[in-house]
Design a binder for these strands. Structure first.
Lengths: 207, 207, 207, 207
DNA sequence: GATGAATGAGTGTTCATTCAT
DNA sequence: CATGAATGAACACTCATTCAT
């Protein structure tokens, strides 16, 4: 039994090579050869570890989704006490930081989404991700906005604004500056909504 | 002159066949054969008229973008006098109506966007579209919100929310109901912003 | 519409190239490339005309079976009046002549049979061929041997002897001399059976 | 000496696994992995013991041929005194029993034969087997049929009928009933020939 | 000895493009 | 002009073989 425990390492290397290849060559331009070459391995290794091209791609998506979730969890654990508003800020930051840090991910996400439409497995992963964001937002908004229907609406609007900001930033010019501005606007939207519909809201508040 | 002017007709038929094929078979499943068969023509005609597969796809995107613009123009021309707020509603309606009417377009857009990242020609078209939406929104918001910076921010937020709502609706379950709810929330957001930052705004305004 | 009527010609050329390739390289060694190269065409042409490798192989088998049947028919039509015994000789001659004339076929048949075991489509064709031979033999034997059960048995024995002789000749050394000797022994067997069990049989007959 | 003598055991297990795999997956579907997995060993062991896939397959053929020979020997040894006619019956029984008992062998043989045409090593084994059967038959027929040429002819016919019957039974429907009927007809053929050309033959002999 | 992870040449198939008709 | 037959490079995937352990 040679090289015990090397399997997870190589799988991880292949997943990263997959993300790099999609970043560099796009979804259509990503082949088993481009992935394996980036990983410095043979082409057969992908079928060996992931059963096929589809397998490694799904694993890569799952990896991105897990990274996103872990990013939020580590933020939440970084502080002892967190107000609902702080928590909302962290959700926003997580969703944008993921793309600032590992810039490849930015366009990769969009490639995945484009693919998800006609690929049921990817679509399922995508829907899980959507529901998770919305439920994360709603959890905090319910503590800030007494009217449940309004809290729901706001959660939906915020989720849309996060995705829309991210989408427009990615498509127009995926630069760091754009993402930071996008993050700022999302946070501002949340503040505006909480001021307007939150518990102690007295109405006007020129933030 | 028996065949004069037949070229634009055939090109249009091929563009429509391209959209139909992407709707039916997805981006990856769309080939020169699926397009030409849907158009009832030979496969060679695509290279003949559009130079290749890439060409007909770009033409199809251009067609979708023009449809979007024409949709807004015809709405604006339908009424003699239009307030800035009404105009904003029309912009929102236009962006969602395009997808309600011809449902195929919904997922087709996303396919194009996914493709656009690594296709400079598509990306350029996409950026033109983005700027047009934002500038359309800003044109109206400037007439409603005196603070220019605030008007810009609001235009950006609105554009993001439109795209984000559309994106989430398309990915989760492209049903008519979702799109109508998405449209409603976008309009609500605009109302909230105008109430908050508009000319006559005295600050608080409880719905 | 270029080159009208060229399709059947090219299909026939590909079928012959398939038989040549199986003769030369065996069943396992026959690939789309070996076939198309022998036919002087591109590799894609096989999928174009036959849907795939499986398709061209089945077409080749069908071609061999048809050749066999046509061989018998042309022999039967070559004479105005044919006695049942003459007809039996013709059946035997047909089954051996096919392999003398186009020597490649000899080992090709065996390759097909080996393949037929795990390929339902080939197996079906093979069974049709078997039944045809046996029914051809029985048709004549019934006119020569009054006892129906005996006629059936003899038809079965003759079919087995034809196949067995052919099989052993092919495997041992596919030379013309072997096939002619095999043919002679099959004919002799028929004569012996008819002498023994035929209508006017008085018993001994040193043919 | 803990591992001395383990090699022949493992080789035998691999040979049996090879036969099982061919029975289950066909010749084409049999790979080094299917064989080694059935044997509960690693894939590398086959190259280790047999030099490669080709090696284990040849060993499997040799095993089948030896089984056939051993089958006849054990039958011959089961009785003290055996008449030439009894011996012929035993030869027939041996050739069919091998396939009734271990039904897998039936289709496996044909796969081997199909392969043998383009594999010199397999072909040589096959020819040895053929000659052995014919010589076995001739040995007995010479004691029953005084005319040597006639005895030779009859041996050849019998060998062909055995192979032909087996071939047709295997291809049409490898059921036990078919093999028993095939065996019966071969025996009947021998009786007919001996009656007709045997020592005491006075010519006619109505069953 | 024995393993099985890794390789990479080879497979059947797809499909954008070309071009003789 | 328009066709669609033909091409052949590119694809995902298979699998006998190798070799470090």
């Amino acid at each position: 039994m040679p090289k015990v425990g090397i399997e997870p390492v190589r799988k991880q290397q292949l997943i990263e090579a997959t993300l790099k290849s999609i970043e560099a060559n796009g979804f259509q331009g990503t082949t088993i050869v481009t992935i394996s070459r980036l990983a410095g391995m043979s082409s057969g290794i992908i079928s060996h570890y992931f059963g096929g091209k589809q397998g490694v791609i799904e694993a890569a998506v799952r990896h991105l989704l897990e990274q996103l979730q872990q990013g939020l969890l580590s933020r939440l654990n970084s502080r002892a006490e967190i107000t609902p508003l702080e928590r909302l800020m962290m959700v926003v930051e997580t969703n944008f930081s993921g793309f600032q840090q590992s810039s490849p991910a930015s366009s990769t996400w969009l490639s995945f989404w484009g693919q998800a439409i006609h690929d049921p497995d990817l679509a399922r992963l995508q829907r899980v991700n959507q529901r998770r964001l919305e439920s994360n937002l709603l959890y905090s908004f319910r503590r800030l906005i007494p009217d449940l229907a309004r809290a729901r609406e706001t959660a939906g609007m915020t989720a849309a604004m996060i995705d829309g900001m991210w989408l427009r930033s990615t498509l127009s010019a995926p630069q760091d500056r754009n993402f930071r501005e996008a993050e700022r606007l999302c946070k501002e939207f949340i503040h505006l909504q909480v001021e307007r519909f939150g518990h102690q809201s007295t109405g006007s508040n020129n933030g």
